[in-house]
Structure formats: C-alpha cells, structure tokens
Design a protein around this nucleic acid. Structure first.
Length: 745
DNA sequence: TAGCCCGGCGTTTTT
DNA sequence: CGCCGGGCTA
C-alpha cells in the first residue's frame, strides 16, 4: 500500500489519507481529481474496508466505466464489488430494487427526451392552448429544472420567484398533467429518477429503507461535484446521513452544465452544507497540473481569468514548453478550409518523431460541426472516431425496436405503443387511435385496455380485423420473449413483425439494427443480461457519450491513433496530446444566444426560456477553458471568416475568447474583421435586395436574407455576424446599407 | 388510411 | 438545408 501512496504528490496524498468525516477537494484542471478518488478507494480497500460499503458517483457512464477500470487495475478483485455508477443509474437501481416497497410497478420504463416531449404535446393538445410563447422543448426543460429543484406541480403553481411575464399557471397545469400521464404510462423521465428516489427516501413511511442505504454507504465519493443540482445534493445528504463520510471533488472553473440545473454554489458551500455539529468538513486543495505544458496552462489561465464569478487559483505545471511551437492559431476562409487545414496538420504531425503515436482530438461546440470533418477526413484517408454524434439510441429504427420491447414488457406505455402499432403499416391509423384514446379516457382505462377490448367498440370490421391481427402478433411475441436471449429475440422480432421487410435494402438502417444486436450480445456476455427486461434497464441510461462510431481506412500509412471527434461537453475529463478547437467564431463559441450581461448563475430557475434566460458568457468561457485544458503537448485554435448557414454564407468574426487569450501577450499578431463604413441611408425596403449587407448600431453587420411586405410595416430579415437572425422594420430600426465590406488584416 | 406537397421554422450542450 | 405539422387527394 505504501507504493500506492508514493505514486501521489503531497497534496493528493493528504486527501487520499483523510478517511474520516466529510471532505471536499478543490482540484484544479489536470491535477488528478479522478486519481484522488480511485486511489482513495484503493486505499480504503487496502485498509480492509468492505467494498460493499463504498459508493462512487459520477455524471456520465463513460466516467463510471473509466473509474471502474482504473480501480480494477489497482485492486483487481475487490474493485468489482464497489458500487460505481452515475446518479441516474444509482437511482434507477434503487427504484427497481425497492419498487414493491415504494408501491410502484417494477416494470416501469424510462422516457428519454423524445418520449417525454410527445407526452407534453399530448397535454398541451388536451388543454387546447393557443400560444404560450415557449416551445415544447422549453416547457420540457422548465419542468425538468423544476424537478431538479424538487419542486412538484403544486409548489410550482404557488411559487413566486417565477418571472411574471411567463404563464406560470399554464406551465403548472401542463406539469401536473404530464406527471399524471407519466404515471398512467408507467414511465419515469430522467429527472424523475432522482426526484422520486429522493421523495421516497425522505418519506417517513420508508425510514427503514432510507436507513438501509445510509447504513450501507460508509464511504461516499462524488466526482465533478461542480455539476450537481439540488436534487442530487439532497440525495447525497440522505445517503450520507448516518456516517457523514462523504468525499467530493470538483473545480468551479469546469461547471458547464448549469443549463441542466447544476449550480456551482453546492461545491463552494459544501463546507457549510455538509458539516455537522461533531464533524467539520475538511477542505483540500490540489494545484499542480500534470497534464499540460506550462505554455498551454498559461493560455488557459489567461482565458479563465476573464470570468468574474470564480475562485482564484494558482495552478502550475512543471512541464516546459515553447510558446511558438505549442500553440497555433489559424485563420481560415470558411469551414471547409478549416477542416482541410486540420487534416493537413494531422498528416504533418505524424512525420514529427515526438508526435508519432500522439492522441489527437478535434473539439467543437455543436454536433453539427462534425460533418465537414467527416467529409474531409475521408477525403484525406484519416481514420477517425466520433464520440456521441447523432445518438445511436435516438435513431428511428432503434427507437422502434426498443418500443416493441417496451410494449411487451409494459403495454401501458402508450407512447411506445402508438409508435409501433402501425409500424410497419397494419391498417390501424390515426383516426382509430384517436377514437380509442377518447374511449380510454371516458372509461378511465389505458389505450392498451381499449385495444384488448376492441370487440366492444363500434369500429368497422376491417379495422377490428387489423387490431386482432396485431393482438395475435403481440401474444405470439410475448410467448417467445422469455425463451431466448435479447439479441436473438430482436432478430426474431424484426422477422415476425415484418419490420425488416419495411426497411428493405436501406443498408444504413440494417447496419444500425445489427449494431443493436451486437450491443445486446455484448451486454449478455459482459453484464450477464439474459432477459428483455434486464436489457431495457441497461440501455435506457445509455446515452450519447457511450456510442462511438469508428471509421477506418485500409492500406494506410497512418501512424497516429485514430483522431477523436467530439463536442467540448463530451471532452470533459479526457486528455489528448494534440487538441484542435475549431470554429472559434462569435455565434458558435460563444454560442449566439448568450448575452454579455448574463454572466453568472441564476438559480434556481423555475421557468426559463432558453433564448433569454439563464445562460451566460461565463459558461461559454468555461467551456472553451475545458477544451484548451484537454491538451497536453499542443493546441490549435482555428476560426474562419465566412460560414455557411443553411444555404447562406455569412461573415463571421473571431471569437472574443481568442482576443482575451492574446491580448497583452504580444506573442501573436491578431487579425480582426473590420468594416470599411461606407454606408447609405435606406428610405424604403424597395431599395433593398436579398444578399445585400446592412449595418445596425448594436448588432453590427448583417446580411439581408428576406424582405417581407407585410402590413402594417414592411420588414427585412437580417442575419447578423453573431449568428442572430432578426426580423426588423425600418420604421423602428435604424439600418444603413453597406456598400461593401473588407477584411482588414 | 396513407402518401404527398407545402409552408414555417429552428440554429446548443447530456442524464 | 432538413424536419416537422397540417391539409389535401387517391
């Protein structure tokens, strides 16, 4: 065990050896946060602590898997018995285990965003609301945020913190109906997993169950604590209520999930919140960065120092570097040009001995940016791997098959039922479903119940026939469901439902289904999954970051490891020798809707509109910071002067973050995009054509994409440099026509 | 019932 | 551009 501790520096060791009472480790970027947790667990095991009593919680499955692996290498046998999981799977597991005690059905399904949004749409339809001014997704987010803050529909209705311009009453009503519907469908959404678990464990009726878990978890660990939300904090308080032995690790500069309800205040106030009368929270700090060269760390420090709401740190690195070689900034003409530059640089890199086996990543703000890199990398025969991208489990054919499985397990799941009842076509159309739903409502039963009792309805014989056929198919599938492994059953199912015939020869979709079968097989072997129920439970919390799409090229003399493409969010927690951060332009990073004045955290937000509230420039800056600090040896920052948006091309300006990094440094010549302001007044829209440029006092240069002659005022639709699209009337807005624009070096 | 066409609209990040 | 929903027709 001595050896284990010798692998740590003094600051890390101090944290690892402190094993009694609540503690918080403020660990800057690259200082070995996860290392502290894994070594602490290993240390505990070496002291003879029963792995059964240890819990470690992370945010992503990826992080959980990595921790398991690292721990296994330190402590091969006992490590597997340590409970390491994400918040969501921890709660799902508790809910499955205690379902009977809690009085919920054990076969509940977990709805993802798409399912949930469908249910919300149903609620809105029922209420026959005309216009709320919020999209269904905004409403979904609002409800999720409420749940993250443990606010139920009633509390929501009466809370007064909500901004008055929003229809609070209406949202409360939607929320209430949505919860009822979830229950009728025997479903929980993501936020429910945490909220319900907390509600049950808090309930006086379940004191015994609460104590069972609180007694069990003698040592609790939480990674990336800056990303926790209120509900998660309450959960942790419950779980640590007996032993008060909780160790959390975090970095306020890396909080990039405030839009998901997380709040850095829980990290900063941890001492106050988790100290007890007898036990004061012990605070630790780790400041030595082992990951990046000095030069790269310096750049990241410069950037993050522009944030006002942060705890000042003194991070340092002992890895020598050379500014000119380590950090490169490149101006490109457009996105294609940028991707080509990245490709060429990667090919150059592998000629350099130092980078022969280097790991390389391309990081971007939005998933849609990956496409051009895929194209260009294929052209240049550069093998790559996309982490995340279009989520595998959100693809149509995958969701269809999962929906079949769900309905077989839980026929009350009407969202899944409606998804598959006429896929492929069986002659059970919309009107039939609508009719049956009305009946279900009248008789206070489920849609499924009405389908089973189809004989009692007044539907045409043709329709009844179609439904009978569907029911006999269902019975047959149900009969075979438990006779084979999930992977076999999926193959059986797509045959018998004629789903495979519907797909025909669309290779991509067939490949996807094959991949699903592979995943099932893998789970059967690795996780001992043998039933459809277990399979569903396992995959319902699989998400973006867990899916990887590998593209390889044969006959290649490519030395580097495959290049990794992913979003900045997914990149958190990872490191690479060489990092490209691309698309560093205003409107992308920072993304267009953040406002200068929104700098801090507004929380709890009980109702928000993504376009106007909550998100601020500081979180975008942190995101950029996370990206930069992934780099160990070399960092590329690229931007372009023009970008295409839908079919349009529009001018772009370099991100302010570039300027912040480079200002004062004098080490780079920074190019700016300037206007030669030769403008003229515009009297009428008639003098304008689409494609022309205009100047606005506040928004800057924009391109006219449309001219609308609609009473009472004519309007022009303008896309501005920061990406914002505005509909403006000349009556109210001062616009000047731009005679030409130039790019000044 | 199902498929087609048209118009409007949205650009995020993840469990 | 690409995806939705609505409306229309076979």
């Amino acid at each position: 065990m001595k050896e284990l501790l010798l692998q740590l520096n003094e600051q890390q060791r101090a944290a690892v050896e402190y094993i009694y009472g609540p503690m918080v480790v403020f660990a800057g970027v690259g200082t070995g946060k996860t290392r502290v947790i894994t070594y602490r667990i290993a240390y505990l095991l070496s002291l003879g602590v029963d792995p059964y009593n240890i819990l470690a919680v992370t945010f992503t499955n990826k992080a959980a898997c990595e921790m398991k692996e690292r721990l296994s290498s330190l402590f091969p046998y006992k490590a597997e018995k340590v409970w390491i999981s994400t918040f969501h799977s921890l709660c799902a597991k508790i809910l499955y285990t205690e379902a009977e005690n809690f009085g919920i059905k054990r076969n509940f399904v977990i709805y993802d965003e798409e399912d949930s949004v469908k249910l919300i749409k149903e609620c809105i339809k029922e209420m026959s609301i005309q216009h709320i001014g919020l999209s269904v997704y905004d409403i979904y987010d609002t409800i999720c945020r409420a749940k993250d803050n443990l606010i139920d529909p009633d509390s929501y209705r009466i809370n007064t913190i909500v901004f008055q311009q929003y229809p609070r009453e209406i949202i409360a009503e939607i929320y209430l109906r949505y919860q009822t519907k979830l229950q009728q469908n025997n479903a929980l959404d993501f936020s429910d997993l945490i909220m319900k678990t907390v509600q049950f464990l808090k309930d006086e009726k379940f004191t015994e169950i609460r104590n069972k878990y609180a007694e069990r978890f003698k040592y609790i660990h939480v990674d990336e604590f800056q990303d926790v939300n209120h509900a998660q904090v309450v959960l942790l308080k419950i779980l640590s209520s007996v032993h008060h032995n909780i160790c959390v690790v975090g970095d306020d500069d890396q909080n990039i999930y405030s839009w998901r309800g997380s709040d850095v205040k829980y990290l900063l106030n941890f001492k106050k919140e988790f100290s007890t009368q007898d036990l004061q929270v012990k605070e630790f700090k780790i400041t030595q960065n082992y990951r990046s060269k000095k030069t790269i760390l310096e750049v990241s420090n410069k950037l993050i120092s522009h944030n006002k709401f942060r705890v000042k740190k003194e991070l340092f690195s002992n890895i020598e570097g050379d500014f000119k070689n380590d950090i490169k900034i490149k101006q490109c003409q457009n996105e294609y040009d940028e991707a080509e530059f990245v490709a060429k640089e990667i090919l150059k890199l592998q000629q350099i001995p130092e980078f022969k086996n280097a790991s390389v990543a391309v990081l971007y703000r939005t998933n849609s940016q990956s496409r051009i890199f895929e194209e260009v990398f294929s052209e240049y025969k550069i093998p790559y791997k996309i982490v995340g991208s279009v989520a595998f489990f959100e693809r149509k054919e995958i969701k269809d098959i999962i929906a079949y499985l769900r309905v077989l397990v839980n026929p009350e799941d009407s969202i899944s039922l409606k998804r598959i009842i006429n896929t492929p076509h069986r002659g059970i159309g919309e009107t039939t479903i609508l009719y049956l739903e009305t009946l279900a409502k009248e008789n206070k039963t489920s849609l499924w119940e009405q389908i089973v009792k189809i004989d009692d309805t007044e539907l045409s014989l043709k329709v009844k026939n179609a439904v009978w056929k569907f029911l006999s198919l269902y019975d047959m599938l149900k009969k075979y469901k438990d006779t084979m492994y999930p992977s076999e059953f999926i193959k059986f199912l797509i045959e018998k439902t004629k789903y495979i015939d519907m797909i025909g020869d669309k290779n991509e979709r067939i490949a996807n289904i094959e991949q699903l079968v592979d995943i099932a097989k893998r789970l059967e072997v690795q996780n001992n999954i043998s039933t459809v129920e277990d399979f569903l439970n396992n995959i319902s919390l699989f998400t973006l970051a867990d899916t990887e799409e590998k593209i390889e090229f044969k006959n290649q003399s490519f030395n580097l490891k495959e290049v990794v493409l992913m979003t900045l969010h997914v990149a958190k927690g990872l490191e690479f020798d060489v990092v490209f951060i691309v698309g560093l332009v205003e409107g992308i990073l920072p993304i267009w809707w953040v406002k200068e004045e929104n700098i801090g955290y507004k929380s709890p937000i009980y109702l928000f509109n993504k376009n106007t509230d909550l998100l601020g420039i500081e979180e975008e800056r942190r995101l950029c910071y996370v990206g930069i600090t992934r780099a160990k040896k070399m960092l590329y920052l690229t931007y372009y002067l023009k970008r295409s948006l839908w079919a349009e091309e529009q001018p772009s300006v370099p991100s302010r973050f570039l300027e912040e990094i480079l200002k004062e440094s004098g080490k780079f010549k920074f190019t700016q995009f300037n206007v030669v302001p030769e403008t003229e007044e515009i009297e009428k829209v008639d003098f304008l054509t689409t494609g022309e440029y205009v100047v606005h006092d506040r928004f800057g240069i924009g391109k006219i994409v449309d001219i609308l002659k609609e009473p009472p005022y004519d309007k022009v639709v303008v896309v501005f440099q920061n990406g914002q699209k505005k509909k403006l009337s000349l009556k109210h807005t001062k616009l000047r026509k731009l005679k030409g624009y130039n790019i000044n070096q």
